[in-house]
Design a protein around this nucleic acid. Sequence first.
DNA 1: GTGAAAGCGCTAACAC
DNA 2: GTGTTAGCGCTTTCAC
Lengths: 344, 344
Amino acid sequence: MDTPRAKPATIADVAARAGVSVPTVSRVLTGAAKVSAGKREAVEAAIAALDFRPSAAARVLASRKSQVIAVIAGDTSQYGYAETIRGIEEVARAEDYTVMITVVESTDEAEIDRAIAATLGQPLAGVCVLKFDPPGVAALHRIPSSLPLVALSGVREPGLRQAVLDEARGAEELTDHLLDLGHATVHHVRVPPSRREDGRTTGWRRALKRRGAVIPPLSDATWDPRSGIEIGRRLAEDPTVTAVFCGNDEIAMGVIRGIVTAGRRVPDDISVAGFDDHPLAALWSPPLTTVDQDFAGLGRRGLQLLLNEIAGETGRRFSSERPSLVVRESTAPPPPDAAVRRIG
Amino acid sequence: MDTPRAKPATIADVAARAGVSVPTVSRVLTGAAKVSAGKREAVEAAIAALDFRPSAAARVLASRKSQVIAVIAGDTSQYGYAETIRGIEEVARAEDYTVMITVVESTDEAEIDRAIAATLGQPLAGVCVLKFDPPGVAALHRIPSSLPLVALSGVREPGLRQAVLDEARGAEELTDHLLDLGHATVHHVRVPPSRREDGRTTGWRRALKRRGAVIPPLSDATWDPRSGIEIGRRLAEDPTVTAVFCGNDEIAMGVIRGIVTAGRRVPDDISVAGFDDHPLAALWSPPLTTVDQDFAGLGRRGLQLLLNEIAGETGRRFSSERPSLVVRESTAPPPPDAAVRRIG
DNA sequence: GTGAAAGCGCTAACAC
DNA sequence: GTGTTAGCGCTTTCAC
């Protein structure tokens, strides 16, 4: 047997105790209409005495307004995702909204529908989709158009409310930094792209093209940082490789490990840069040159956009922010003999 | 002006279209009672045609049953938290529950109440509190006893449904490993404790006591890995320090960085171990000796406990799992001259 | 300002 | 099996 659970007080209990009608209690609850000071106090006292909490279900049913935001994401524990969600939650809490999390792991329509069914059945004020990966992209198109919606990151889609991080610009700047250091070209280790091509790869390609550098074949890593090790080892064997730009900091850490175990040094022999400015990037040996991405800010901007739509404000439908280059110690000029090797 | 949002179909629309009564539609929805095959098919067809989704609000109001689990946590982006939440979400999704996340940042009662008010107003099936830190502990006591509740981790509390990781055992085993390597004692860098003393510190102290080793003063780190750097630097200056056990892997990474920048080597001069087996622990230089904590499993076990309670099953109220030691390369025997130094 | 009456979309209890 | 009748706990007209 468990402890018997006390039946929660209802608005009728409060009204009775305060000696007013039910709608009057509702008025002090919602603040929608004026209530005389005396009654208001009586109601507030009754609410406190009974530890009354209005039932959101009844409230939603009657008012057709919800205070719940659903966040749909392909993952939640990875750094970028977790930080973005933190940003969303922060704004939500400040505005008295509640956040619901749903994870979609597949790109299969039926599976997505199954995953989001429980969430879409809830009374929702709006939906935030993290468009970082293919499941996120696929989920976006399964959200009924009757719901206010915002997409975070990903490729820009016309007509869609969207907050993004301008990854292409960040990647371009980072590639330029490496080129400015004197590297003939920059190799790229790609993280799994959300579409055909991702902003990081686009920016890298754009910079190389603009500077007239050779565009070397790219390597594909998985989300597991260990996948970088093998790639690093392979890259280390190629004497023409002097600079590597990795799709994220964790992969960069794996790549560095692979390079180092292959007997070459970072940055003396090979420069390696990451992306994101992960909290551990500055602690790595050597401290990682990277691009700072304000994921929490992305989450905040995104939810702001969504809240604007919910409030019926016309405002902006798009918000972009440019990440900033963070130069640390994992990048340096190429070794003096690199040019010779390239020519020989 | 925005796109007009189509008004969602109701159960009455479905009933009309299928030519049956509203309760019959409800019966096929809930599966509570038998419906003839013909009507069932008609209803299902109508549901599909109208893209009907039952309103959770109305459902909850009428049935007094919710499918929402609230997770209350002091943080969401840190590794252990994020992983635990992932485990919770996994089980929830499989069981058709939805997860709501609430962050509490303070230990102040009024602030906690404010933070969880929006969530507790929702119709909830149960609550999961992450008791990793003081806000979590404080929040636990603000949850109305009318709600099914489970606490994850933290000090055991009688009468509370709880899933834990036996951190004390893990820490003890790790400390033993260091002592077995020949270290005279083990220093400890503590992460902010959730209570007066945390399992990791308790286990460390217990092992030292049992082995008759001196219990050195402990150092306090913050959750920021960088706080480990200064501590590592300080520890490196003390020639009697040969082994350091850090409260988590991230702090260990900071401590190693501090030791290395002070000109000493890990593990040659000083062994450093972490805790948690963070995904980057194996990639660090040197790869970190640590204790594997299955946070996702903790989340899964915890939600299972909660779901049992919701289902009214008597079952276990407590679930504990023992983390396992992972020996890598950041720990080694003390340098040969360490004993001499200690004596001299 | 305030109360009475109606109804949000669904499930539960009860007849048939 | 199936329809009829209530009613979940609130907000929303609409009188007064």
